[in-house]
Every structure is written in structure tokens, then in C-alpha cells.
Design a protein around this nucleic acid. Sequence first.
RNA 1: GGACCGGUAGCUCAGCUGGAUAGAGCAGCUGCCUUCUAAGCAGCAGGUCAUUGGUUCGAAUCCAAUCCGGUUCACCA
Length: 660
Amino acid sequence: MPFLIVTFALYHYNSIFMSVVASIKQAAAAAVQALYQQPFTAADVSVNTTKPEFEGEYTIVVFPFTKFSRQKPEETGHALGAWLAENHPDLVAGFNVVKGFLNLTVHDQFWTAFVQDAHHNVHVGQQPANGKKVMVEYSSPNTNKPLHLGHLRNNFLGFSVSEILKANGNEVIKANLVNDRGIHICKSMLAWQLFAHGDTPASTGVKGDHLVGDYYVHFESILRDQAEPIISRVLEGNFKDFEGEQLERITKLHTALHKPEVQADTEKSGKIKDEIKELSRNRTEIMQQAKIMLQQWEAGNPEVRALWQTMNSWVYEGFEKTYKRLGIDFDKMYFESNTYLLGKDVVEEGLRKGVFFKKADNSVWIDLTADGLDEKLVLRGDGTSVYITQDIGTARLKYDDYQMDQSIYVVADEQNYHFKVLKLIMQKLGEPSADGISHLSYGMVELPHGRMKSREGTVVDADDLVEEMVSTAAKYTEELGKVKDFSEEELRDLYETIGLGAMKFFLLKVDPKKKMVFNPEESIDIHGFTGPFIQYSHARIRSILREFSAEDLSSLAAYRHTGSLLPMEKELIKINEQFGEVLAEAGRELSPSVIANYAFLLAQTFNSFYAKKESGKYIYSVRDAESEDKRKLRLQIASLTANTIRQSMKFLGIRVPERM
RNA sequence: GGACCGGUAGCUCAGCUGGAUAGAGCAGCUGCCUUCUAAGCAGCAGGUCAUUGGUUCGAAUCCAAUCCGGUUCACCA
């Protein structure tokens, strides 16, 4: 019979302990093997938390066992419960069976041992190193404009997932692939050249990324002005702005637009109009100039390169400030100006291997129709790269740099198709990095009135938003007046902690794959399922602990409660004990929202514990506990809860204050 | 049209590897500050889990079909 490792000795914070749920599962699997000689593993056992109306903490569903027990569910439950109570008396103190559910009462000693060892353990719930290396690429901004709301979800997700993976024992490399070249930055450069009269961040006092972004906006407005007459000419049937292939295309579009079936279909006609717009924009003088500038950049024109260097450096200075304020960091920066030519050699190899094929115009393709996708271009006829070519090359570069087991791309769900294709191509090429590629796809952040559109000026700027969140936090805090003795510096730090906490929590509490609506009023809320609620709960616990001396608190490490536990004492310890499982699940699912939900439950449970009143008395009072033993136990529980809240928020990238 | 994602309370979301009477927060309504921090707590009210069918001891959860919303299917990045 396989013996089980469920002893108190395991509860030492530098050793790996098994969670209660895992222990129960393993014990139950052993029970089934012993009682019914069935090969049953822990993973096959379904364990739930016991509903409050029944006695016990965890419940084993026994229906699956009745197949081979050949007994009624009740009888099977009793047999299983009796076996567990006899063979694991340390774990199972008692049981009852209701229909097909075996409710187990975990031995109080299990809980008290956990509190003793975990209450001051800053590594609670974490896993030791597992030897796996994971790269998380996130943020990946363009250098022509400042970060916006969409980037915030990306940044917080990427950072949080990285921290969660670290806590699960992985070595994590946080990477940022900056899109620092291309037509977009040339637009900013050109507009700056034409209109800035030499203005710099230093001369204007404008943050670098915003200054560059302002000229991008300037470019776009001029482009709009120049494109308008061309568009109207086209709509009137005057194509004098076009020649060659473009003329052919625009003529076709114009004809199509006037077909009655297209006129009736607003979606179709809208698409055609969009294409006409796009073609017209390309014919404007300013766009032509920008394109020339891009060619000069590619040819290495020293003046263009110098301007590019300068303006990018302004942007990086701005980004640096924003990242720092957000509490976001990276281990490795990649720049597209270094990677945009990569991938062509891989395509050559693929061509030789027969993974790709050439068309008559010399363009290179891959046929993915067998995989339910389309044919996909990987190299243009003139030998230049497309988006995916770069990504193929960059994937190889990253792997050459780090040989990681997994490479996670934090990118919005618009690009699901792209990453599916990328992984497939890498697999067909037999690249060692292929199987580790995964796309952490997240839904777009929308505003109450719809999607953000930069051309319509509905983009929410990240810096502005942070500023607004922080000042709102300041306003609330001042109204409550609880920290009047704080210094200027302490106050500023507190406002940052709360404002950013509210924003990060708001963006992380929802399942990443769901698109979300960003409602400014709700995101600033501090009540209910919010960051500040959890921060407040932490501050309150710290305030309780502050009543006790350092000696009092340090003596807790040697204390183990031996009496029985009251219901909410047990409940709180139980929830704290689940943190390890929660952290593991968040790692498996790459989902910070799992932790956000957990942290809220924990804070909420503590608040109930704190406020529980019977006949006018606070029955879980720490200070006025009914005995010295209970006082110590509750100090441990309070300390444990503050610790778990702090840790869980840390994995979301959110700080918790001592007072607020 | 194909592929992928979503549809759970008035609103925003948990729950989805099948388990007991579907949970939170917000908004609405009641109470509770001579309290270890009321940014809190306790309670009331609010549901055809998009629809239909199937699988089984058991379905919000799995399967199929349908309906609605989104994204995508560029020699843009």
C-alpha cells in the first residue's frame, strides 16, 4: 500500500508542503486502491469545499467510485470515510455522508500547524525552482506616440503573469520588443521637421513621448486636410490623382460603389469607401514625403538616422518615466530596427526544406490549407519582408539568446490568427522554439461609447489616466482624514499606491480573454470588488497588529494553538491555506484574475471575522480575546492574512499600505 | 462565407477539468460607528445561466444545431 505523506513535520516554510486539498486527493486515491483494488490517481478525485450548511471543510464526491464499489453512494461514502479516518487520523478528524457526498472535517491540528509556520512566511504558497525558463514578451509599444489605456492592460497583464510564473518556480525573462522604426515614426519626424522650429522636451517642458505624439497627431491632421479633396474628386469620378495600377484599382472601386447591391449594403459600401480613403491618403503630398523619409531611413541616410535617434531618445525618456511610475520593468529590450531584417534566412532554409514554395512573381508562400487556414505570404516578390517574416526571425533570435522552454506573447486578441500562423510555421520548420510558443491573448479595452480610435481622438492617455486615478485617491483619502499625521512624501506615496492599485486591480480582475469596458467612474471606485478595498483590509489588519509589541509578535513563531477552533477562525485559516493552489492555478491559466478574485474573498472573509458580533461583543477580538491562547492564535491568523493579502497583491503588481 | 472568442441578476463580472439550493460587486431598500481603521459589517430584493435538442445518477459547465455580439481571414505593422 502506498503510504502517504501527511504529517505536521512537513509544515515548515522552507520545505515544500502539500496543500490540504492535494493531501485529501492523494489519501482518497489510496483509499480507493486499498478498498477496491482500482488504479485511481489523485487527479481523478473530485474535491470541493463543503457547503456552509453541512459539517466539514472539504467534500469528496463519491459517485465516481460506486462503479467499482458496487454499493450505494451512501455506503461507499461511509466505507471511504472510515478508511480515511483510520489511516489518516492526522488529516481527517471526522466525516459525515450526505447522499453521494463525503464531508470531511480536517483535524484542527492541521490548521494550527499551518498558521504557525505560514503566518510570517513571505514565500507562502510559492514553488521552488523547477528548472524551466519562460520568456514573456509584453508592452511592445510604438515609438511615435505615448502609451494609452490599451497598453495598460497589456503591461499589467504581462508583468503580473511574469510574477505569477516566477512564484510557480519558473525562471522568467521579461522582454519588450519596441517598434522603433517604420512609417509611423517617420510621420512624427516629418511633422517635427516641418513645424517644430527645433522644439525639444527640454525647451518646451513637454514629456518626450507626448511631444513626439503631438507631432504625429499634427501629421495626421494635415494628412486629413490633404486627403479630403482627393477623396471628393474620386467620389465625383475624377481620378486625376492616380496613375498605373492605382488608377485601375480606384476606377474599379468607384464602379463597385455605384452598383445597386453595394449601395443597399452599408457594410460593403463602407469597406469600399475605407479603401478609397486609404488609397487617397497615400496620394497626398505629405504621405509621399513620409515614404521618402522611410526609404532614406532604410538606406541609412545620416541626417534622417540622426533625427530618428534623437526623437526616439525623447520617447524612451518618456516611456521610462511611465514604466517606472507603473511599477513595470523588463529584463531584455529588443528593437525592431535590429530585428526587422531577420527571418529572410529562415525563409531561405524553409524553401530548401520544401516547407515554403515560390510563386511565378518570386514571392514565397506557405500552404496552411491542410490546417484549416489559408495560404500565407512569407516574403514579397521583391525579396522584402512582411510582418510574419520578422516574427519568424525574432522567434529564432530569442531562442538563440535564451533557449527558453516557453515563449509567451502578450498581445491583443486581434492577432489570434497571426500567432496561430506563426506557431504553425515554426513547427513545420522544425524550429526547437516552436512548441513553446504561446499567445496570451487578451480582449480589447473599450470605452462606454465604443472602441478607442486614435483618428477620432478618443484614446485615453496612460499618463493622464494615472494622474487622474492618483488625484482621486488623494481626494478620497483627504475626505476621510485618517492620515493627517503623514508627511508630504508619505502622502504622495500613499496616493500613488491607492490610485495605481485601483487601476491595476480594475484591469486585472477580469478574465484576460474577455474584452472589457473601461468605465472611468467605476474604475475609480474604492468600494466593493476593488483594489482599495483589499488595501484597506490590509491596513486595518496592520493596525490591529500595531497594538502589540515586537516581542509579542516574534513569540508567535514558536506558538502552536492546541485548543479547538471557532468556525470563522477555521474558515479564515482554510482560505489562507488555499493560496498555494490559487497561485498554481493562476500560473496554469496565465490568469491574474484568479488571484484578484481570491484576494477579494480573503479580505472580505477577514472583514466579517473582524466585525462578527454576538450579544454586543466582538467574538473574534484579538486584543480582548477570551484567553491568552486565543489572543496568540488570532494574532497568528491576523498576521497570516495580512501576509497572504500582501503576497497575492504583489503578484498583481499592487502594493499594500500599512495605513490608509 | 471560413476560423476563433463571448452571451449568467438592471449594470460589471465569478463559477465552466460535470456535483448538493447558481455567487460577488455596483445601483436600490433596511439596520449597525461609547468599534482592535465604517474605504467596513449584517440583511432585503433582484435569475427561463441566449434558444432547442442530446449525453447521465446528476448539466450554467460536455456534445450538436440555431440566434445575437465581437475579432480576424492584407504583398499594413
